[in-house]
């Protein structure tokens, strides 16, 4: 039976203002959801809410109809989050960086393969401080390959990636979906994730109520 991850009338309040309100989403096993919207519309916030890093002020997240807030540990165990920060320690080698995060989630068998997959196999023993920004991004993506998780939450995963790496990412997500996983991506670039991915334009849910007037804020 396919699993379903959904959110109902989610409202996000951040930095003294409502970012979006009454937002609904739903993803099922094998599906991909692409979040779009202008800068500041709340794509990152929504992904952080989905991950449980940010609390929604209203609404609820559900897994197969049960509230996620009742079993936060289970929710964390089934998701991978790649944020805009790379969580890379410059003094550790590429392999050590990846191995640490992988070993928090289980065995280490996947590390070498994951580095090969994202094209960092040859520089695995290099200190991470010498990585370019695109290579850092690849290393972040290697985390989702090195250990398995059912839900992938990817915040702007394509930033800094070259064409080749975007291709790798597209294949990864397509394979993940084919294997029964689900993925949520926030991105500005057109990306092919293996067909009939759903789009969600967050600006449709832009909050109408605001605590401060825009004019008042800009002063």
């Amino acid at each position: 039976m396919p699993n379903r991850f959904s959110g109902h009338s989610i409202t996000c309040f951040r930095g003294e203002r409502f970012v979006f309100e009454a937002l609904d989403f739903s993803v099922e096993s094998g599906e991909a959801l692409v979040l779009t919207g202008p800068n500041g519309s709340g794509k990152s916030s929504l992904i952080r809410i989905m991950a449980g890093l940010l609390a929604e002020v209203d609404g609820r997240l559900e897994w197969n109809g049960d509230p996620v807030s009742e079993t936060p540990e289970d929710h964390r165990a089934r998701l991978h989050y790649v944020g805009y920060q790379d969580a890379i320690k410059p003094v550790m080698t590429v392999r050590e960086n990846l191995a640490f995060w992988a070993s928090l989630r289980g065995p280490l068998d996947g590390v070498t393969g994951a580095l090969e997959t994202v094209g960092l196999g040859r520089i695995a023993e290099m200190p991470a401080q010498f990585l370019s920004s695109g290579q850092r991004r690849r290393l972040s993506l290697a985390r989702i390959v090195a250990s398995t998780a059912e839900v992938w939450l990817l915040d702007e995963p394509t930033v800094g990636l070259d064409r080749n790496a975007v291709g790798i990412l597209e294949t990864l997500v397509a394979d993940h979906r084919a294997g029964g996983g689900m993925a949520v991506l926030a991105t500005h670039q057109p990306i092919a994730l293996g067909g009939d991915e759903h789009g969600l334009d967050i600006s449709r849910f832009a909050a109408r109520r605001q605590i401060f007037d825009d004019a008042e804020v800009s002063q």
């Binding site: 991950a51 449980g52 890093l53 964390r76 998701l79 989050y81 944020g83 805009y84 920060q85 790379d86 969580a87 890379i88 320690k89 995060w101």
Partner: peptide, 9 residues
């Protein structure tokens, strides 16, 4: 560097 996010998750 964002490691706190991942440690929490």
């Amino acid at each position: 560097d964002g490691s706190t996010d991942l440690l929490i998750l």
